[in-house]
Write a protein that binds this DNA or RNA. Structure first.
Lengths: 211, 211
DNA sequence: ACATGTGAACTGCTTCACAGCG
DNA sequence: CGCTGTGAAGCAGTTCACATGT
């Protein structure tokens, strides 16, 4: 196993996995790097390089066995187990995420939900009761949470993040539009929809300006 | 203006803008590249390089004027106008996006919403009526939509994308976990929450494995 | 013959270090 | 003196091209 794998490689592996699962459902038994590349919007060489960082999964002259490669990529991504996830923030975004079936299906189980609004605390979402954020640090440790999803307002997210880290959680998915400061041992990913929209705004104004 | 600007630069500019707006609210009049770097999780040199791609906005020995730089970055990102946005898919994610105040505040106005579920068609969200996806292509052209947000299931998203492109929309924000195939003149951004979670899964299993 | 796996070349982003200017 | 603006150096990710194996 190599020391350092780039973000981009990991992201592409996730995409390949989806295509592989689709091929599997359709009963396809073999794929070439070329086929994966077309679906993923990249090149065959890139696919082979990504995979070669973790081993040799293909057969020369033939391609990759779909079931074998699927299993291999799942394992690489650490999807062989259930991950215990906490959702902090039971607003609009939190609610959409809770209902998002894809997560559960991929082994991410939301085991607790927090909110600071007394109106919401005590309500049940499915079989999970919304708890008061006050007890967050303690509960996260007790529940052995692996990943925390932060869907809280930007002005409190750093404080929430600090408490999550204190509880020993090693990974954070942040929906607030700011950079979190965490120890290097904690993995952080961002989802920032406004930033994506602004990238589109930028692209659009460029082509207009060029006309 | 330079020919090619990287995705990463544009993303960072969006972040800088948020910090600048925050400084502005707090009445700070001047920032250094260093101050922006700390907030954005990058380096002072990177900030200066990003900005220098578009011009000289600072004063040597002093830093940047907050109001001036804010205005400059807004202009660079094309945020000086209202963008007309269509939301396709009125499910959980669509609903969360519709309510997401940040968009409107930054000049992205959702002017129409589509869904293919007859149950939903005809209902009103605020002052926008949900329309049948059947009339999508025609309506998008009539409404002069700039950007389409696709929050539809993965198995129909390519078809929806084709119709959106046909209507002449130049920018797409895609929430479905697949690569869209569009002409090079159309700008596409992705938001893929499962991919982000899988990156965390990958990171977590690495540190465990290393122990 | 065909498709993988991979060193080598290349491209482009990031970091460095310092000249330039307030 | 302090901080910006920027060529040059360094580094990382991508693409190329071919040896390797079926």
């Amino acid at each position: 196993m190599p020391r350092k794998i780039s973000e981009s490689t990991v992201g592409r592996l996730s995409l390949y996995l989806r295509f592989l699962e689709e091929f599997e459902r359709r009963g396809v038994t073999t794929v070439s790097s070329q086929a994966l590349a077309v679906r993923g919007g990249t090149t065959a060489a890139q696919v082979r390089k990504d995979l070669s960082l973790f081993g040799s999964f293909g057969k020369r002259g033939l391609g990759y066995s779909v079931p074998e490669l699927t299993a291999a990529v799942r394992k690489i991504l650490g999807l062989g187990r259930q991950w215990r996830v906490a959702l902090v923030g039971a607003g609009r975004i939190g609610s959409a995420l809770f209902e998002y079936g894809d997560f559960r299906q991929r082994g991410f189980r939301i085991v607790c939900v927090f909110d600071s609004d007394p109106e919401k605390v005590g309500r049940a979402w499915g079989d999970v009761k919304i708890e008061d954020s006050a007890g967050l640090t303690e509960k996260l440790g007790r529940e052995q949470v692996d990943i925390a999803i932060l869907a809280v307002p930007v002005d409190v997210v750093q404080e929430v993040s600090d408490r999550v880290v204190e509880a020993g959680v090693g990974a954070i998915l942040n929906f607030a539009p700011t950079q979190l400061h965490v120890p290097p041992s904690v993995a952080v990913q961002h989802v920032n929809m406004s930033v994506e929209l602004e990238a589109l705004s930028f692209a659009l104004s460029r082509v207009e300006g060029a006309a």
